[in-house]
Design a protein around this nucleic acid. Structure first.
Ligand code: MN
Ligand code: MN
Ligand code: ZN
Ligand code: ZN
Lengths: 124, 124
DNA sequence: TTATTTTAGCAACAAAGTTGCATTAATATG
DNA sequence: CATATTAATGCAACTTTGTTGCTAAAATAA
């Protein structure tokens, strides 16, 4: 069973308290004296496996993490749209926005990553 | 003006001759004695800027490259679906599949990356 | 053919992520 | 509450991916 350590609690708080998705580097800056950077990687993995947070790959390939409302619920999914602003750099979840996929029937869909890049509402 | 060197021609041939998208590492394996790995990065950048190929970010964050039919045409775009098989690892373009986005009007969309992960037709 | 400009190679560097192992902390059990 | 058990952490070392500066070598223009 997974243990709730100080570092894990702190990192989950940071992610849940953020309105935007955060990179490992951004989390590291906020946890300077809490734990090692390797520990952050391991805690992020654990939180993803425990469905507390989800992983978002930005259009540039950089991995981000966010907690969304559905995360805590069972039978949840993260198939929503993410928006990455090229001006302010913020990566935001659009939890109410999903899409329809029409792939050939032989294809079994497990998950998808949809990240839209452009200029956000604040920056336009 | 961009110059058509041996390495650039060879790399474009490899990408155009492939039915699946290729990573820098995969391209490097096929160009062992052709050129340096830094040169491959620079050629890939050039080919993207010249709209000969396009860049796809996989669900794991790994960058892939593919040439699609629309690439050579002017006013083309790469807003199509990509499928990443978790069994065979192949990343395929679905050039005929696009999606509808309904973001708030203040959001200006520039590009998107949509990669679906699951089991492909061959592996299911 | 020679001048000009782009491209290539090389070394060095940086960011992101992984692994092994000894130590420390959290939880379970008596 | 004490201690055994197991999970988490820190640290060092390493890998992968990508970038930058600079000189040498090619490609194209004149
Ligand atoms: Mn999200
Ligand atoms: Mn494609
Ligand atoms: Zn913005
Ligand atoms: Zn497959």
């Amino acid at each position: 069973m997974s243990r709730n350590t100080i570092a894990k609690t702190r990192i989950l708080e940071i992610i849940q308290g953020s309105s935007i998705a955060l990179t490992h580097a951004a989390i590291q800056e906020q946890t300077r004296d809490v734990c090692d950077r390797v520990t952050i990687y391991r805690i992020l993995d654990r939180l993803v496996n425990e469905n507390e947070i989800h992983r978002i790959v930005n259009v540039n390939g950089v991995v981000n993490f966010a907690a969304c409302k559905r995360c805590s619920h069972s039978s949840h999914h993260h198939d929503h749209i993410h928006f990455s602003c090229i001006k302010c750099g913020e990566l935001t979840c659009f939890e109410d926005q999903s899409i329809d996929l029409n792939l050939p029937s032989k294809y079994i869909i497990q998950e998808y990553q949809l990240t839209v890049a452009g200029i956000c509402g604040k920056c336009s």
